[in-house]
Design a protein around this nucleic acid. Structure first.
Length: 311
DNA sequence: GCATGTCAAGTTGTG
DNA sequence: CACAACTTGACATGC
């Protein structure tokens, strides 16, 4: 009952009902305008998004949510080959920088954990030079944002296997070493549901001192012989050895565990899917559920009720 | 307004 | 071989 640990939940990227919106645009639509107009349109979107981020952080603090995952296109098309731009090119650059300063202060005051989860085309294990170059550019962008908001984590999957997992992991290791420190110091690796399990990733993560984000839903979709308790313990030890708080992901299958597609995420979390071995830990758990903030509020409530029923 | 097609990018597995 | 799935639909267009 009176466990010393404290689980904090994390909200992922967007809201379901609360009217806090992030804006986006496309390269195709921007290309119809002059460069000046493009920059002006982008400036407006970036300013809007940073102000939305501030509102989002205010919401999470109000609702006792301890972490927030920031969506990657906070600055849309920042690295697009024909659109790319710099923050200081934007007419609103000064205002945006002030917003970032306020966000950093707010994050620190309220101890909010901030993370990024760059998109699936960021692949550190790819044998293709072009893919690695694109990934590096995209990660530098995430690193820049991470410094501006004081985010701790840039979380990635290990990528493809290409018929030789050992070779792919070896390439991944090499690519990691090439990353600049403001990126590398924030990189985490997450087990996925088709290729890389905790058993695959932990040796590399432990050797390279890269924390591993443990997604228990992926582990259940792609088991590796490790029990949930074993994986949790190894992951917790790794984060602790780096003097950092462990980071987990949770979700529930939309169509049930016996369906053909347990991978698909449900709107809410079934509290039965919350692993007992996480109870009492001090850790962050990102809630990957379609109902977003509503799913977190419900899970917090469900777990509190279970806790009260336990002798 | 509302329905619909489109959007930069990787990799894998399924129907 | 097209498409869905992945952390997340939003936006432009045309009626």
């Amino acid at each position: 009952m009176a466990d010393q640990g404290k689980i904090r939940f994390g909200l992922c990227c967007i809201f379901h009902k609360k009217p806090i919106k992030f804006r986006h645009t496309t390269a195709k639509s921007l290309m119809a305008h002059s460069r000046t107009t493009q920059i002006s349109l982008l400036s407006e979107i970036c300013r809007h998004n940073v102000q939305s981020l501030r509102k989002a952080l205010n919401y999470v603090v109000t609702h006792r949510i301890g972490a927030f995952r920031i969506l990657s296109p906070l600055f849309p098309l920042f690295t697009h080959p024909s659109i790319h731009y710099q923050l200081d090119e934007l007419p609103d650059a000064e205002l945006i920088r002030k917003e970032f300063a306020a966000i950093r202060a707010f994050r620190q005051t309220h101890d909010i954990r901030l993370s990024f989860h760059p998109d699936q085309f960021n692949v550190l294990s790819s044998p293709r030079r072009e893919v690695i170059n694109n990934t590096s550019r995209e990660l530098a962008y995430h690193g820049l944002l991470a410094e501006l908001v004081d985010a701790e984590v840039i979380n990635l999957h290990a990528g493809g296997v290409y018929d030789d997992k050992d070779a792919a992991l070896h390439r991944l290791r090499g690519t990691l070493k090439m990353l600049p420190d403001f990126v590398k110091s924030r990189i985490t690796l997450e087990n996925d549901d088709i290729s890389y399990t905790p058993k695959d990733l932990l040796p590399l993560c432990e050797a390279e001192k890269i924390p591993m984000v443990y997604d228990i839903h992926h582990h259940r979709c792609l088991p590796d012989g490790f029990s949930e308790e074993e994986a949790t313990e190894r992951v917790v030890s790794l984060w602790h050895s780096l003097d950092r708080e462990p980071y987990f992901h949770i979700s529930s299958p939309k169509h049930g565990w016996n369906s053909k597609t347990p991978r698909v995420h449900a709107d809410y979390i079934d509290p039965a899917d919350f692993p007992p071995c996480w109870q009492g830990l001090t850790a962050t758990v990102d809630v990957e559920a379609k109902a977003k903030e509503l799913a977190i509020l419900k899970l917090q409530n469900d777990l509190r009720e279970i806790d009260q029923c336990t002798p």
